[in-house]
Each structure stands twice: as structure tokens, then as C-alpha cells.
Computed example of a mutant assay.
Amino acid sequence: MSLDERMRAAALLERERIARELHDSLAQVLGVAHLRLHALAARPSVRADEPAHREVLDLAELCHEAYADVREAILALRESTNPDRTLLEHLRAYVATFSRTSGVPTSLVVHTGAEPCLAPCAEIQVVRIIQEALTNVRKHSGASGATVTVRALPHQVECTVADDGVGFEPADALSGDGFGLTSMRERAEAAGGGLHVDSAPGRGTRVTVRVPGRGVAASAHPAEATA
């Protein structure tokens, strides 16, 4: 086994260890805290005190949101620990699970006649960008649906995450970076590509990453569309 292969294997093992520890500790604590806070809020003495009741419910909602974030982090780590999966296999599995657990129906549409060919490091960055973009869909967009599209371009592979949510001003988001756009852009650049964000209030969001790679252009109809 080469040095690169050993380093990759060690990284995958470490990700699996972190995912397991997050599940066994933080995720379980947040889940229990959410349930106990709701039980506390249901007590007559707490319900009689409106400010206290509202505060307990707000804390319960914070625990629920943090629990969802941790669950997505665990999923992202575990989806990246299988070295035998191709890019499309990673995306099929992640999109299916995200659609089921987030409450946002999400589809994968593939416009390429063959598995995209990316460098291993670029493939990891692309998957993480898509995962981060979908996290934003769940947390910020209020969308009723989202689509992940993979397309073959000359000498490039393009992946887009689009939603029909509330949208935002990209310049404002970058200044506060509550959407992780800086991190996504750095990941795209690390893969030798670039990131483009198209959004405005009231018209949804499209996050597009293009990285060097090879794919076979499909016909005018999608090669694949899965919910």
C-alpha cells in the first residue's frame, strides 16, 4: 500500500471514529435534552408562567436544531468513509437520506452518460460542498423541494444544488458567512475549480460548483432522476 493509500485509509478510519463518538455522545445528549425540556414545558407550574414556558420551549427548539446539525454531520462523515463508492453512488445515498430525514423532498438528476472522472481529492471536496449546500437548504431556505444536478461539460464536471426557497443576498451572506459560502468556495478552489451562487430574496438559490474532470455528455433527457 502506498503512502497516499495509507493516509487515505487512516483518514477514513478517523472519520468513522468521530461519527461514532458524535452519535454515542452529543447526538444522544441533545435528543434526550429535547425530550426532557418538552416534558418540563408541559408541567402545569411551568405552563402557568408564560415567560418561563416560552424560554423552555425555545431551549427545546435549540436542542432540536443542534441535534439535526449533528445528525447531518454524522451522515456526512459516514458517507465519506466508503472508498469503494463512486461520486454518483455517494450522492445517491446522501440525497436519499437527506430527503427522508430533512423534510425537504430532494432529487438527484444526472446529465452524464458515464460516471464522472474526478481526482480523489476533488471528489471529496465536491461531496462536502453539496452536503453543506443541502444543510443550508434545510436550515435557511424554507424550501418545499430541492434538486442536485450533475452535468458533464468539456473538461469539467458541474454540480448544482437548487431550491425553491426564500433566497438571500449573496453579498450579505458572505459578509456574515452564516451560510458557509467562504468554506464552500475554498473547497472548490482546492479542487481546482470554482463556486457560483445565484440567489435573491424571493426566488430561491442555486449553488454551482465546477471542477476539472471528465464525463460523457448525455442526451437531451436526464440519464437519471431519483428522489
Score class of each variant (00 low, 15 high):
F98Y: 15
F98A: 09
A60G: 01
T106S: 09
L75M: 09
L57M: 11
R203E: 15
V148F: 02
E186M: 09
G31Y: 07
T81M: 12
H53T: 01
C159W: 01
H140R: 14
S144C: 06
L12V: 00
H221L: 15
R151H: 08
L40D: 00
E72H: 05
A143L: 06
G176E: 15
M7G: 01
A10K: 07
G142W: 07
T112V: 13
H196M: 14
I74L: 01
V127Y: 03
T106G: 10
A190P: 03
R100I: 08
G113M: 13
S107H: 11
C117E: 14
T208R: 09
T149K: 04
R185A: 15
A152I: 10
G165N: 04
H111D: 13
R6C: 01
G145T: 05
R138M: 13
R187H: 11
F179V: 04
V209Y: 02
L75G: 03
R128D: 12
A11Q: 11
E89H: 08
A133G: 11
G193M: 10
A191E: 06
S2Y: 00
I130N: 02
R6D: 00
S80F: 00
H90Y: 04
G202D: 14
S141M: 09
R15H: 03
E132C: 06
E186N: 15
A188T: 10
R92C: 09
E14D: 12
G215S: 13
V209Q: 03
L108H: 06
E50L: 12
R206P: 00
A146I: 03
E123D: 08
D163S: 04
E5K: 03
S45T: 09
S99C: 11
R71K: 08
P116N: 11
G31M: 05
A225C: 14
E50Q: 09
S175P: 00
A190L: 14
A39T: 04
A220L: 13
L88C: 07
S175K: 13
H34G: 03
L87R: 02
A188I: 10
